[in-house]
Design a protein around this nucleic acid. Structure first.
Lengths: 203, 203
DNA sequence: CTCTTATCTTGACAGTGTCAAAATTTAAAT
DNA sequence: ATTTAAATTTTGACACTGTCAAGATAAGAG
């Protein structure tokens, strides 16, 4: 309760664990994040983290959750600022792929098999991911009205496929299949053209 | 050398290891494939596999390699049978995603981070993946001539982005983000329309 | 039959996730 | 202020992982 919130035991272990874990995965990749090493970095015994996160999966879920908050913020910011639909969408594509590139490990947790297949997404994660997707779909509907995205199908379907395309590019970047920035930038431009109705105004 | 090829030690351990490993990842996922359990299944001691594969990464590379042979075969078959470009392409999309769905673990090895980022693709794997991609790009050029895919960019770029879109859908299926077959089938149809020039003839 | 080489096994080490029980520190109750 | 209850952390343990080094075994060559 004093100015330094560290009078008791560790202070806020939960927070420290998340921060250190985020740093570790960012710098060394998610496969070299171990509960024991994490505990050691934070300066606590091997099993201390287990009183703040049920297990490793729960920790990973929490990290992924933070990623969704970030992504939701990006989306809402773009939707809020009222510029032309084409510009907004093009910008979103770049922001989305930029995020995937710069926070590749978090992105992988958000959508990768570690949690969604090998592990088990917890309720909080399922909730925020669902909510973020909903924001996206609602924006797709607007973009359809603005003739930026095709309206030959429901917002849900167009949102699903459009996002799948972005996701595919993101994964190729993340998994290290395309690395040269020159290829990447041209691929992103072409992808925008693929996704927009009017490929001349987008890009 | 007799009818039962098992006179000496094991027979063909390399082959047995690959077969059993393929079975294990297919039925239980790649994360529950361990060198020790694999050795046990094949009926050999823990370290015997290490005389046939340098390490676990090498084993995974070999499994991925087989996947590429399969995929190359699919591609070549489709290219060989001369039917309309639209039909061929549509069929390819379905075959591609069908493969991803039915051999999801192998697909993950082929393009996933386990090998390409966390691990290290060996020379054989790099070679066959490159070759498969080349076959794809050459077919894209044909599809562009047939006005199935857009020719507003080079075969390489269009091939990259088109494949990225397919890959994205494949990953969503594999990582368990979309599971209901009803959604899936409609998403695939919509994706085909997105990728083709003439969305009315494709689908 | 001996020797070389290919193949496989045993032993060992460091690392992992996580459970159970004990210890400690803090906050609440009297 | 002293006792009590709760929150927090630690120690010990177990089963599992990948993989190295050294020894054992078996196959084929001479």
């Amino acid at each position: 309760m004093s100015t330094l919130k560290k009078q008791y035991h560790h202070g806020d272990l939960t927070k420290s664990l998340l921060e250190s874990a985020a740093l570790i995965i960012k710098e060394q990749g998610v496969e070299s994040l171990s509960m024991r090493k994490l505990a050691d970095v934070v300066g606590v015994s091997r099993t201390a983290p287990y009183h703040h996160f049920k297990d490793k999966n729960a920790l990973l879920c929490a990290l992924a959750e933070q990623g969704f908050y970030e992504q939701e913020k990006i989306l809402n910011n773009l939707i809020a600022q009222k510029q032309s639909g084409e510009k907004s969408f093009t910008q979103y594509v770049h922001l989305y792929l930029g995020y995937a590139q710069q926070h590749s490990e978090t992105y992988d947790l958000m959508y990768g098999r570690a949690i969604w297949k090998a592990g088990e997404p917890n309720d909080a994660l399922k909730a925020v991911s669902k909510r973020t997707f909903k924001v996206w779909i609602e924006w797709v509907e607007v973009l359809q009205d603005q003739k930026v995205l095709t309206d030959t199908n429901t917002p849900l379907r167009i949102g699903q496929t459009t996002w799948a395309s972005l996701h595919g590019l993101a994964r190729l970047i993340i998994d290290g299949i395309y690395l040269e920035q020159s290829d990447l930038s041209e691929m992103i431009d072409q992808m925008v053209k693929n996704l927009c109705i009017d490929s001349s105004t987008c890009a």
